[in-house]
Design a protein around this nucleic acid. Structure first.
Length: 117
DNA sequence: TGGGTGACTAAGT
DNA sequence: CACTTAGCCACCC
């Protein structure tokens, strides 16, 4: 099979694969980890390789999973124990406040804003 | 070489 | 809180 531009694609897959269970990352966050803002390009990679990566651990900046994939993501989130926030009507979204994973957290700065609710 | 698209984001209504 | 508009980047034909 093809060896599509393994530069950008390979890095995206590596970051997604580095997300631990019960945690999620935003498309922009993955792109930022690569030094780019191509959140859309990340989505393209997921669309093509989503069958071999934990795509459900990658969500939008709002905490919603990829459109038309929420049902699949929900099963994974429930199985992985990812913290979710439920809204009336049955719609849900990932609690980024608790589930957002950062591959390179800054030890500096007393960021209690995300540690003391 | 150029143009169009998309599993997105941020800001405004 | 939900929907709409404009902007950006990488990939495909």
């Amino acid at each position: 099979m093809a060896t599509p531009s393994d530069d950008f694609v390979s890095r995206v897959l590596a970051v997604v694969d580095s997300i631990p269970e019960g945690r999620v990352m935003t498309y922009g966050g993955v792109a930022a980890a690569l030094g780019s803002r191509a959140a859309r390009a990340v989505g393209q990679v997921m669309a093509y390789y989503g069958g071999d990566v934990t795509w459900w651990r990658v969500v939008r900046a709002s905490g919603h999973p990829a459109v038309d994939h929420e049902s699949r993501a929900l099963e994974r989130f429930r199985a992985e124990g990812t913290p979710l926030k439920w809204a009336a009507g049955g719609t849900f979204r990932v609690d980024l406040r608790a589930a957002l994973f950062d591959p390179d957290p800054d030890p500096e700065d007393a960021g209690d804003a995300a540690a003391s609710p």
